[in-house]
């Protein structure tokens, strides 16, 4: 049973939006080039999502046993 208020994809989406916003701002400030950075690191969104899914699964199983 999923706990109310937490969804891995929601957290992932939020984190990605925050990261994208920060990178875009830095690009506008001339601190980095947006496209190469996003192109290099965007697959990490899958990693983040997967980790959160595993953590969610582990928490749910732990809650079920106790």
């Amino acid at each position: 049973m999923s706990r109310p208020g937490f969804s891995p994809e929601g957290v992932t989406l939020g984190a990605c939006l925050v990261a994208l916003g920060v990178l875009w701002t830095l690009a506008n400030l001339g601190r980095l080039e947006l496209l190469p950075v996003v192109r290099t690191w965007w697959p990490l969104s899958f990693v983040l999502w997967g980790v959160l899914e595993l953590a969610d699964l582990w928490v749910r199983r732990s809650s079920g046993r106790s």
Partner: peptide, 25 residues
């Protein structure tokens, strides 16, 4: 369905980034 939709969203975003990378210039 929500997770599938989110997966497609991420893949779509990645496709856009990769396309922009190769089409740049």
């Amino acid at each position: 369905g929500r997770k599938i939709g989110f997966l497609l969203l991420l893949l779509g975003f990645g496709a856009v980034v990769e396309t922009a990378w190769f089409a740049r210039g």
